[in-house]
Simulated assay, not measured.
Amino acid sequence: MSGTWLPPEQYIATLPKATVYGCLFVTDEANRPLQLRAARNADLWQWPGGNMDPDETPWQCALRECVEETGLSLAVEPRLLAVHFLPPLGGWTTHKIGFIFDGGRLTRQQIDSIVLDPDEHTEVAVKSLDVWKKEMSTHSFARLQAVARARHTRSVCYLEQTATP
């Protein structure tokens, strides 16, 4: 179609579609990552977050999802740690693009006050990277480790998943 002009609505229909998510990487005061066990898949550990709603930014999404999933309203400034790209996988028919933000360090009191949405998560866990490595898939742990490194080095990383883990 080179050289052929399409009206915006027709051109947009030709573009790849993507779902966008926002989430917060949080740790305890000793920098041990906090994760939530997914209710629908006991082997899956996640950060507080989820898919973006219409008229919402990835940052707003991450904050909203954190409140919905943990009851915590975090007063942190937006600081991007990673962008995560996934192609259509399994039954998911669109690309997925994630924005992982630094949610800060939580006190013991904050962690103890977490109230999970039982439809989404069954457990909160705070563990060292060495322990998480033994309990997560290789692909999921690599993402966790890269994001922890980005926070430690005050950088941003790009993560791309090209095949089913």
Results as ranks from 00 to 15, higher is better:
residue 110 Q to N: 11
residue 98 G to K: 01
residue 106 L to F: 00
residue 120 E to Y: 03
residue 85 F to D: 02
residue 80 L to T: 02
residue 93 T to A: 15
residue 90 G to K: 11
residue 72 L to R: 04
residue 80 L to N: 00
residue 71 G to V: 05
residue 74 L to E: 06
residue 108 R to N: 09
residue 82 A to W: 00
residue 113 S to C: 12
residue 80 L to Y: 03
residue 112 D to Q: 11
residue 101 F to K: 08
residue 89 L to F: 12
residue 97 I to R: 08
residue 67 V to I: 15
residue 83 V to Q: 07
residue 107 T to I: 06
residue 86 L to F: 12
residue 102 D to A: 07
residue 70 T to D: 03
residue 100 I to Q: 02
residue 90 G to E: 12
residue 105 R to F: 06
residue 117 D to P: 07
residue 101 F to Y: 13
residue 107 T to Q: 06
residue 94 T to E: 11
residue 91 G to R: 14
residue 111 I to W: 04
residue 91 G to D: 14
residue 111 I to C: 04
residue 95 H to Q: 08
residue 66 C to H: 10
residue 87 P to A: 03
residue 117 D to R: 08
residue 108 R to F: 09
residue 89 L to V: 11
residue 115 V to Y: 02
residue 97 I to K: 11
residue 76 V to Y: 11
residue 87 P to K: 04
residue 77 E to C: 06
residue 112 D to L: 08
residue 78 P to C: 04
residue 101 F to I: 08
residue 114 I to K: 02
residue 72 L to M: 10
residue 69 E to F: 02
residue 92 W to G: 12
residue 95 H to E: 14
residue 102 D to V: 00
residue 94 T to L: 01
residue 88 P to F: 06
residue 118 P to L: 11
residue 109 Q to A: 08
residue 95 H to A: 12
residue 89 L to W: 02
residue 103 G to T: 02
residue 84 H to N: 10
residue 67 V to F: 12
residue 91 G to M: 13
residue 75 A to P: 13
residue 67 V to P: 06
residue 105 R to A: 13
residue 109 Q to L: 05
residue 94 T to I: 13
residue 100 I to H: 01
residue 90 G to Q: 07
residue 117 D to C: 01
residue 113 S to K: 04
residue 74 L to R: 10
residue 107 T to M: 10
residue 66 C to M: 11
residue 81 L to K: 01
residue 108 R to S: 13
residue 110 Q to C: 07
residue 84 H to Q: 07
residue 92 W to A: 15
residue 106 L to D: 04
residue 78 P to N: 08
residue 116 L to Q: 05
residue 66 C to Q: 11
residue 120 E to P: 06
residue 121 H to R: 06
residue 79 R to L: 11
residue 103 G to V: 02
residue 92 W to H: 14
residue 93 T to F: 13
residue 75 A to Q: 09
residue 114 I to Y: 08
residue 99 F to V: 02
residue 107 T to R: 03
residue 112 D to E: 06
residue 92 W to Y: 15
residue 103 G to N: 04
residue 92 W to M: 15
residue 116 L to S: 09
residue 86 L to C: 10
residue 100 I to G: 03
residue 94 T to R: 10
residue 74 L to K: 13
residue 85 F to T: 05
residue 115 V to C: 06
residue 102 D to E: 12
residue 69 E to S: 12
residue 78 P to T: 11
residue 73 S to G: 13
residue 93 T to V: 15
residue 77 E to I: 08
residue 67 V to Q: 05
residue 103 G to D: 00
residue 83 V to C: 09
residue 112 D to R: 14
residue 114 I to M: 07
residue 100 I to P: 00
residue 71 G to K: 02
residue 106 L to K: 05
residue 114 I to Q: 00
residue 96 K to V: 15
residue 75 A to E: 14
residue 74 L to T: 10
residue 95 H to S: 04
residue 121 H to T: 02
residue 112 D to P: 07
residue 95 H to P: 01
